[in-house]
């Protein structure tokens, strides 16, 4: 089990915390959902990687949990302006899940139970930048926070870290997700304050 520490937690005191522009600190963990919380039982849970036509990889809960895991400590930045620093998760790196996938696609559409979607360049999911997490603070991830398993893409605004993930569609052409199709920025880098479409 690898240990990766990102962000500022554990290395700096509270006095020199640095937040992305326009963000404020919260110690709470607000629940922001665009729909009802899906309750997905582990014996029905499945995660697929497809290319829009064929399923390239498929895991059920058992085979997913047999993958090597990492403990990560990351900062969360929500576009609704709260940031929560130093959160602890356990999950599987997307590097692990994409390792045997042969593709020349450049984009990914992440799909969730409950039909939420978000789009990212495939490069943003690789090189220790993205995980599928199933534990938060040492406990199984609660449904309201995305359990059984959610995406974590901590270098982007939290709407890119889809809750209740069920799969990824790999694409040659980018396609906007749920919020990206209605005024939110296609990339969503909090340090460049890419909140809305039209922001640089």
């Amino acid at each position: 089990m690898g240990i990766i520490s990102r962000g500022f937690s554990g290395r700096h005191g509270a006095t020199d915390l640095k937040l992305p522009p326009g963000q404020h600190l919260t110690t709470d963990f607000p629940v922001l959902s665009a729909g009802p919380t899906p309750h997905v039982s582990l014996d029905r849970w499945e995660f697929r990687i497809d290319d829009g036509t064929d399923v390239l990889r498929r895991w059920d809960w058992k085979s997913f949990r047999e993958l090597p895991t990492e403990n990560i400590t990351i900062d969360l930045h929500c576009v609704t302006r709260w940031s929560k620093l130093g959160t602890s998760w356990e999950g599987v790196s997307l590097d692990t899940m994409l390792a045997d996938v042969k593709t020349d696609a450049s984009y990914a559409l992440v799909r969730s139970y409950g039909d939420y979607t978000t789009n990212l360049p495939l490069n943003d999911l690789m090189n220790k930048q993205a995980w599928i997490a199933f534990q938060f603070d040492g406990k199984d991830l609660a449904p309201e926070h995305g359990g059984p398993a959610r995406f974590l893409v901590p270098h982007l605004y939290l709407w890119k870290s889809a809750k209740w993930v069920r799969g990824i569609t790999l694409m040659h052409h980018d396609r906007p997700g749920f919020w990206e199709s209605l005024g939110y920025h296609n990339c969503g880098d909090p340090w460049r304050e890419q909140r809305y479409s039209g922001d640089e």
């Binding site: 922001l32 959902s33 479409s197």
Partner: peptide
């Protein structure tokens, strides 16, 4: 659902999205 990045109204019967509204 109003606490997220925008307002989402869903069908009371099937929960599919009826309307989405975002202030940008």
């Amino acid at each position: 659902y109003m606490l997220g990045p925008g307002v989402v109204a869903r069908c009371a019967v099937c929960e599919h999205v009826l309307l989405r509204l975002v202030n940008v």
